[in-house]
Simulated scan of single mutants.
Amino acid sequence: MSISELQMGLVGAGGVVVVGIFAFNKWQERKHRKAADALAKVGVQEPLAGEPAAGGERVEPVIGAEAPPRPTPTDQQLRDASARRVPPLLPPEVDERADWVVRIESIESVVAGQFYHAAAQHLDGLGKPVRWFGFSDTENRWEPLNPHGAARYHWLCAALQLVDRRGAATEGDLAHLAAGLQRVCDAFMAIPSPPARAEAQARGAELDRLCAGVDIQIGVNVLARDQAFSGAKLSGLLHTAGLELQGDGCFHSRDDKGLTEFVLSNLEPVLFSAEGMRGLTTQGITLTLDVPRVADGVQVFERMMALAQRIAEALGGVVVDDNRAPFGDKAVGLIRSQIEQFQGQMAEQGIPAGSPLALRLFS
């Protein structure tokens, strides 16, 4: 081998060593960066308005502004975080079938009221209701967030309702919540963990189809025959029967828990009011049973029919259906069987009629 070949060989070997050292350094750099990112995921919350920062300077959170760089958690903060209890995945009040739940974690506790109102600013216009919960470290349980409360939480969650009577949540609804939460969490130095949106949207669409198949209301009319009904007499009958006039202009029959069983409204386009009942006359009234929102629907229907018959007898009217055909035993029996059928389907789907979940879905 010539001297030139030897020199070229040494140069090549040196190049391999240099490349190896460079690659090793890059691997070490990537390893350390990954470790730092893992620590940053449990980053320190920005001090709230009015609270001093760790260095003594007051730092005000600015909603909507670009988040400052996350400081690396101290050893003490990491020890405190590891000592805290990890909460159950979901609060008992939420249901994975009906809610899209985003958990939020912060090393430093956040004030419930401040977080709630900051979130409200960024979630304005959201098409579906959102419920908020915080995990109490002392009580070891999730609890509803008090919008005006001073309680502090390291863990929070937002539960977006996927379905109501307006339909299923859209991709836009989920994206709106995710983006708004990210901006709020950046301001408070917290970390949201939103689940997959596509799966939640598909789940909501399926649940909406199930709800649409059992969403029925039963209406019964009582029409005046020879003389219009007197508002004063009607009001007296309804108060005796235990119905109460509410702000929606209807009389409500309520169960022992205060939940509406059925409502009685004016057949004419005039709302009932306490001050107007004395001078009011009407050609008829309508009683309505919202089947998915009422437990023991058949019994409630029978009580509603009994009241309709009492009103007809007392005021000189007749009980008819939506087609103004008199109710007979056959029609009453058919309605009973329909109520049993639809409420049975709801029970099979794990959404009993009149349950808290049913009241949310059919609202």
Rank of each mutant, 00 (worst) to 15 (best):
E268P: 09
P269E: 15
P269R: 15
V270H: 14
L271Q: 10
S273K: 10
S273P: 07
S273N: 11
S273H: 10
S273E: 11
S273F: 10
S273I: 03
A274R: 12
A274N: 14
A274L: 12
E275F: 09
E275L: 12
E275W: 12
G276Q: 14
M277Q: 15
M277L: 15
M277S: 14
R278E: 15
R278D: 15
G279D: 15
L280M: 15
T281P: 09
T281E: 14
T282E: 10
T282H: 09
T282L: 13
Q283C: 06
G284Q: 00
G284F: 06
I285E: 08
T286V: 10
T286S: 12
L287Y: 09
L287A: 12
L289I: 07
L289M: 12
L289F: 09
D290A: 05
D290T: 08
V291A: 03
V291N: 03
P292L: 05
P292N: 03
P292I: 02
P292E: 07
P292Y: 08
R293W: 05
V294T: 05
V294I: 00
V294C: 01
A295W: 05
A295L: 03
D296Y: 01
D296L: 07
D296A: 10
D296V: 05
D296G: 04
G297M: 04
V298Y: 06
V298C: 10
V298E: 10
Q299G: 07
Q299N: 08
V300M: 08
V300Y: 02
V300E: 06
V300N: 07
F301S: 06
F301G: 04
F301Y: 14
E302A: 02
E302P: 00
R303D: 05
R303M: 05
R303T: 07
M305A: 04
A306L: 00
A306M: 01
L307S: 00
L307D: 02
L307Q: 02
A308I: 03
A308F: 03
Q309L: 02
Q309M: 08
Q309A: 06
R310G: 01
R310F: 00
R310Y: 00
I311M: 01
I311N: 01
I311Q: 01
I311V: 13
A312V: 02
E313K: 13
E313D: 14
E313L: 12
E313P: 09
A314D: 06
A314V: 02
A314F: 04
L315N: 04
L315P: 04
G316P: 08
G316I: 05
G316F: 04
G316Y: 02
G317R: 04
G317D: 08
G317N: 09
G317A: 09
V318P: 03
V318A: 08
V318N: 03
